[in-house]
Nucleic acid binder design. Sequence first.
RNA 1: CGGGGUGUAGCGCAGCCUGGUAGCGCGCCUGCUUUGGGUGCAGGAUGUCGGAGGUUCGAAUCCUCUCACCCCGACCA
Length: 482
Amino acid sequence: MGNDAITPREKDFSQWYLDVIKVAELADHSPVRGCMVIRPNGYAIWEKIQAGLDRRIKETGHQNAYFPLFIPESFLKKEAQHVEGFSPELAVVTIGGGKTLEEPLVVRPTSETIIYSMFSKWVNSYRDLPLLINQWANVVRWEMRTRLFLRTTEFLWQEGHTCHTTEAEAEEEVLRILDLYADFVENEMAVPVLRGLKSDNERFAGALRTWSIEAMMQDGKALQAGTSHNLGQNFSVPFNVRYQDQQSQMQYAWMTSWGVSTRLVGALIMAHSDDAGLICPPRLAPLGAVIVPIWSSDEDKAAVLPMAQTIADALRPFTGVKVDDREQMRPGSKYAEWEQRGIPIRIEVGPKDVAKAQCVMVRRDTRKKEFVPIDGIANAVRAEHEQMQRDLFQRALDFRTTHTREIDTWDEFVAWCGAAQGFGLAHWCGDSGCEAKVKEETKVTIRNRPIEYVQGTKKAEPGRCIKCNGASAYPVYWGIAY
RNA sequence: CGGGGUGUAGCGCAGCCUGGUAGCGCGCCUGCUUUGGGUGCAGGAUGUCGGAGGUUCGAAUCCUCUCACCCCGACCA
């Protein structure tokens, strides 16, 4: 055990991240390049993410469906920007059943084309709209450089696809989903996000507009945690998704697509964990508490184990619980192991506690110990969970706040890039060329344009583009992205 | 795909320069011991030295190729 060393976060963030994944047994490298095996501990977290999102997606009127893994190559080509954006990273099947296929099949990198080919059959009347579909699936993108959870050749995700009668309605949907994602990531994952509009350079291939939520990791880098695209009529035209309106006129539908992926697990790890291992927010923890009974004699054991079970029974109604009654292992080893795995609450029960009808409750993130009467344990754990959930969010928010700087001049910007820790809030004229130049010179890109400014709920703050000094209505978020 | 690095037991590493057929710590198994922050003792198992070729009487060690991973760049959720 003592050897499952985790590289200190300060020393080497990338290695620390990989070490946490290893000791917490979240994932493993597969025999196939760039692919990962999601181990039970990691998959359980993904299942919690799925559950939380699936509920929200259904509550907003969407239905789940499933579309094929294989997409005829020609489908991708129907939307020029779409195929241009994805062709470098496609996996293509050319042989089936030992014979060369008439038409190569692309392993989906995303499902717009195959889904919209079906939508064109299903949508005939304005009465068929809105059409609100979601699918949980795996997708494949042949990435050059991969990292566990953050970017793998194959990953799991959810992709929503909707059709509407007007652009405004589509935009409403796109923003509803953006809020849905923000709500989930902030409240369940305890990771604060910035909602905003992507610049043209980072827009989804084939979209009119791409909105995103951006999170800051503990190394100050930005992670795009979710995207929501207004596709306009860019796909409804080539895929002929048309409906008859109330005036009997044929109209092309306005469409949206949006998704979040197993990348969220990476966000979770990098946002909260520490040098002792994973820290999982209570609402997302498959196991909310672990109980470690302590004994040194058979008599003690006979008293302690039932008490541990009693506590477990009290907690089970609202959280996952495990009694760690492994015989040969000492308590200290168990503590260390459960800390690596990120279990939010540890409860220690020994003979002394049994005598006093109490137990010791320890929080994973702070490691603060507290004596709690047995008969109040359920409420105590529940309250501690809630507090921990809030604290994790607040800590992440504070981190982001202290690592966000307003920057006015290019010199200042360059100096800030040297340190490159966190987000810079700086003006931008709106020109792609300026953004490209900045990226070339500093590796920093625009994360997004704050939704408050884009929508005008926050008053414009005119300024000068840090790169070209051109006019700018409001500052945007800059940062180094994962 | 370019530059750099690493691959030896489950994990972390030594051995490689100066070829002679593999070792250490932790973990694992057995027994006893111990159990409120990574117990102690004794015994034991585990490697086609990332893979393929070559040089050699002999290769973990030298040469060539290849694969994977990590870091940095170009691309991306």
